[in-house]
Design a protein around this nucleic acid. Structure first.
Lengths: 141, 141
DNA sequence: CGGCATCCATCTCGATACTG
DNA sequence: CAGTATCGAGATGGATGCCG
């Protein structure tokens, strides 16, 4: 009984809802506070560490480093080191990373376009007094 | 100089990288640990609170409540209350929410398919000793 | 330059308890 | 059933110092 009763049964059979599924942990790695932004940035071009840090406003050295390690571990980001002085480390997307980033770009794009809608929705939400009495049915049982 | 030198200049002109852009805050609302899962679940069907809670494994009452409030405020989720006894609250996607959820579904789907790749990538990453000497160029400058 | 290690302030999250 | 309130644990993020 893994599907809800009356489920329209679209083709979404993923198990991201499952607690310990790897796809869910990957999803969290990607979607964490900085994962999306890092992937989107790398979609524009390869970056060296500090350049990437500048591109993603507000990220700390620590969190960017940690985020990139996670993404590298998941096989989404490639890290190339040149042990020169000064060092030079280039980050880029792997094939899989590019596919993920492509999807994220679609999402970010949509949200960008929807800024006016979201702004209005927030305004309306914040403006409403208290019990917005949406109480259509009176079935008391 | 908002674009990196040598930028291929694809059409991604969003400002999600900017610290205080509304699209970025919305992105964080959506992509937070539970936002994605809630939206994906609601894509399957409408849900009442506890049913949704069961669908999204591991979410606490508090976080689900908080997540839904945020999504409602952003205009992605609709909340319908029936003040009967016992109370009955239905959650569903708005038009915008459905668009967002559609994108997220694509992402989740991709990650599902990529489970083997990610598994292997993690294994390889964890197995490697230390300095995976990728040091192609010796340009010391 | 590109890190990692440590300390420390803060914020988020989750379990529990309580309300309508 | 559908939440809110509270509190402790852990994650997050900044500052600083060190290393290759």
């Amino acid at each position: 009984m893994s599907t809800a009763p009356g489920d329209p049964t679209d083709e979404l059979v993923t198990t991201v809802f499952a607690r310990h599924c790897l796809s869910r942990s990957t999803l969290e790695d990607v979607a964490g506070k900085w994962g999306i932004l890092a992937l989107l940035a790398l979609r524009e071009s390869d970056f060296r560490f500090n350049a990437l840090r500048r591109r993603v406003e507000g990220v700390s050295e620590k969190m960017l480093s940690q985020t990139l390690q996670t993404l590298e571990r998941d096989g989404l980001v490639l890290r190339e080191v040149r042990t020169t002085i000064p060092p030079r480390v280039e980050y880029s997307l792997t094939g899989l990373g590019a596919q993920v980033a492509h999807r994220l770009h679609g999402l970010a794009d949509l949200l960008e376009e929807s800024v006016p809608q979201v702004t209005e929705a927030r305004r309306a939400y914040d403006a409403r007094p208290v019990g917005t009495g949406s109480d259509p049915g009176g079935e008391q049982r």
